[in-house]
Each structure stands twice: as C-alpha cells, then as structure tokens.
Design a protein around this nucleic acid. Structure first.
Lengths: 232, 232
DNA sequence: AACGCGACTTGACCAAAGTCAAATCACTGG
DNA sequence: CCAGTGATTTGACTTTGGTCAAGTCGCGTT
C-alpha cells in the first residue's frame, strides 16, 4: 500500500494511538482498493472476513428481508463499517454498496482481533469507535420512530444547511432516490415532502436548495440535539 | 454489597475475565439497589454517571421527542445498559424505567473508564458487550423497517414460543400495553394485529396464547435469522 | 350482588406513507 | 436537432397505522 494511504489510515482515531509495530503489521496484510459506484461490497449473512474503512467516496449500508429493502446508514469518509461483526467473528447483518467511486481499506478480521488483544490503545480506540456507531444508530432510530417523513426531511435540510455554511443555500450531495431511501421513504414521498415544505421557505431547484424562512422551518422541524447533533 | 450479589456480577461475561484486584476496586464503589416497578432510572440528556447492570427484573429503554414517546429496547437480566454513553463520557440518548421490581447494580462511570484503561481483559469484554448491543439494535431496526406490525407480532410470538418450549403454548411476560410499545404500535393496533392472526391459528386468552397452525403462522411471519436469532 | 377501576377490545374515522401509472424534465448519443 | 433513457414529479388510489370514543371484561372491594 502507498505510504500516503497508510498516513490517512494512521490519522484515524481508530489507529492513531496504537503501537507502531502493531500498526505496521496490520498494514502489511491490508488491501486498499478503489471501487466504482454501485458495487456491492458485502452481503448480509456472509461471514465478516475484513474490516472495511472508507477512505474516500461513500458507502450505503442496507438490509433486505421478504422482498423489501431499506437503507440502514450512510458511511462517509473516513470511517469504518461492520466493526461489530468483525469483533464478534460473526456474519454481517447488513449489506454494503458504494454510492460513489470509493477507496476502501480492507483489513483481515483475524488480524484486527489479534492486535486488539495485544494492544491496549487499539482496544480502547475500538471501544470508542463502536460506542460512536452505537449512538449513531440510536439517533437514527429515534429520528425514524419519533418523526414523520416531512419532519425528518426538514431536520435533514437544517443539519446540512448548517454544515454547508448556514447562508440560506445548500446542495444535496446525493440523488433524490438515495436521499429518499436514507430518510426512510419512497422517492414519490420525498417529492411530496419537498412540496409540503414549500410553504416553509424551501425552494428546490434540482440539487440546489434555498431556505428562505429559516425560523418557520425550524419551528416545523423541532430539532433535538439528542437526535440531530452528531457530536453528542 | 453482599458477596452473593458480587458473585452474580462476577459471572457476567463483562466481568468474568478481569483481574481480581480490578474487580474488587469496582465493587467497592458500586451500589446495588432494588427499585419498584415504573421507576424512572435515568433521563435522556443527563450525563452518564453510572453504568447500570440489571441483575433482576426488567428495564425499558425509551425516548421522547416532540410529544411522542417510543420504546427503544427491553433489557432483561443479566445485562448492562447505556454502556456507550458511559464509555464516551456523554449524555444519555435514552431514558430508562423499571417495568417490574428490579435489582440494579450501579457502577460509577469514571471507575469503569479507569479500570478499562488498565485491564485489557475488561476492555476486551467491553468491546464484546458493545458489539452485542450494536447488533441487537441493528436487528431491531431491521424488524421495524422491513416488517408490518402484524409480521412483527407473528415473529415475536414464534420467538417466544420457541424459547418457552415450542409445545404450542406460550405466555406473554408483559402486559399488552408494554408489548404494543415494544413492537412499535399502539395498544389498539396490537389488539387488531392479534385479530389478524386468528386465521393463522393464534388463540389468545389473556396472557395465554395457543398456536394451533404453526406452519401457516411461520408462512406469514417469514422469519429471518438475521433479524430473529438472538445468538447470531 | 353491586360497584368501580383498569386493562383490553371494537368501531368509526383520520393521517401518513406506499403503489401504480402517467406526465414531465434533463441530458446523452446519434 | 431529436429520439431515447433515466430521474423526478404528479395524480389517483390503497394500505398501514394512529386517534378518539364507546364499549366490554375481569376482578377486587364494599
């Protein structure tokens, strides 16, 4: 692997504090691969042979049952996914596909577990990463169960608006099909949800969105830091 | 704390492998308390000062936003809850209340974190416990998003039927109000869901349920080990 | 036995969200 | 420029689930 990519990995909280020797031993057995968009990386039910780290691009975690499919989470760089399955040496509970051209670091599960047993700093970092993943999914579950579709969209827009500077403009970074799936609704319903937000100053023009009545939109959204603040 | 109760804690996977001295130091600062039913133990938004271990009884984790409330999980003995908040020294994302008279072990968060940094076996056990919690909530999320209310009830009945011996009879271990909340529906809707299952051989008599057409019920439920098997 | 209370059920209705089909739009490769 | 493809939107309708109100049932108390 290129030393530049190793640097990226090394700078992750997950790998930052661990012993040099242990880090090197992991990198020696790791692969770094670049995938085109819409490639399925893992399939639920298969055994978790590699820890995946999204170095660049975007990955969607999804699940299927009966004939339904649902998006479970979106993984943005730089972050890991399916950590829990790797640690328990279990099967994946979710499938994953790239949404964009993505660069993925693959580290064999057995090496992860072996190093964790020898490197306390690494184990501590794992605990932290796992706890973050857990809290993220708890927030997602609250978002889903305590809000209607329109409210979820309003809060999504407000979060991204803030992250993009908060100047009344924002740009969607996925197509609307994926956005709908992320928000737990159908594309048709997303379209109607945007319609329902028009009276609250949400002007949509393709992927460009203008928020002209922030106060009203916030009134509808009723944001809650225990759901919407990613840093809590 | 009574030595008998310490033995219960010590036998938990979370504490089983750790150093004696470290275990004793934790027990020295821990409290064991018994609570009546319907006592709120923690409130979302407050800081996580104690790790809670349910030694006996039952605890419901729930969350509120707007004016809605939803059950997030049910914690059965012996298990921990709000581990992630403790590890990250963050605020609770969920509230907790006892459903039955419950015995709870309370261990100060700072001691948990301190011992984890010194005891590798304990850190490893934490990783394992957290990974289990994570996978449990992923399964709950899949159950919720990929199934209708009737299907969730059917699968709930089949799981408990199996756990109770699989002889065609089972007994609900909560009142129907709580069951409805756990399954993510209103009590009225649970009532209707039972009605919808009558043609599939589900005979309800108070908390006693007889399953007379297992094959048909299984056909409707379309169980999926990646959702329903607690050991995967 | 009569009462009262809480848990549960039922019915009528409403709201949210999914489905299916058709229309529109945007953009690409002739 | 124009057909063709895929994304998005819109409309009509269905399903799922929630709300409100009125029972009904079981059971302990008086």
């Amino acid at each position: 692997m290129r030393s530049e990519d190793q640097q990226v990995a090394r700078s992750l909280p997950l790998f930052a504090e661990m012993d040099d020797e242990h880090f090197d031993s992991l990198m020696k057995v790791a692969y770094l691969q670049t995938f085109p968009p819409q490639v399925q990386l893992i399939t639920e039910g298969e055994s978790a042979d590699f820890l995946h780290v999204v170095v660049a691009g975007a990955v969607e975690l999804f699940a299927r049952s009966n004939d339904r499919e649902t998006t479970m989470a979106l993984v943005q760089p730089v972050a890991t996914f399916i950590l829990a399955a790797v640690l328990k040496d279990a099967v994946y509970l979710m499938s994953a596909r790239t949404l964009a051209k993505s660069r993925i670091l693959l580290i064999p599960s057995e090496n992860i577990r072996a190093v964790m047993d020898r490197d306390a700093a690494f184990a501590r970092a794992m605990v932290d990463e796992l706890a973050s993943c857990y809290r993220a999914i708890v927030k997602a579950q609250k978002d889903l169960k305590l809000r209607t579709g329109v409210e979820r969209l309003a809060n999504y827009l407000l979060r991204h608006h803030l992250a993009q500077g908060g100047n009344g403009l924002l740009t969607l970074d996925t197509d609307k099909r994926s956005l709908a799936s992320m928000l737990g609704m159908t594309p048709e319903n997303l379209s109607r949800a945007f319609g329902a937000l028009r009276p609250y100053g949400v002007d949509v023009n393709g992927a460009e969105i203008r928020l002209t009545k922030l106060a009203e939109l916030e009134g509808l959204a009723k944001s809650n830091p225990l759901i919407d603040d990613p840093d809590i």
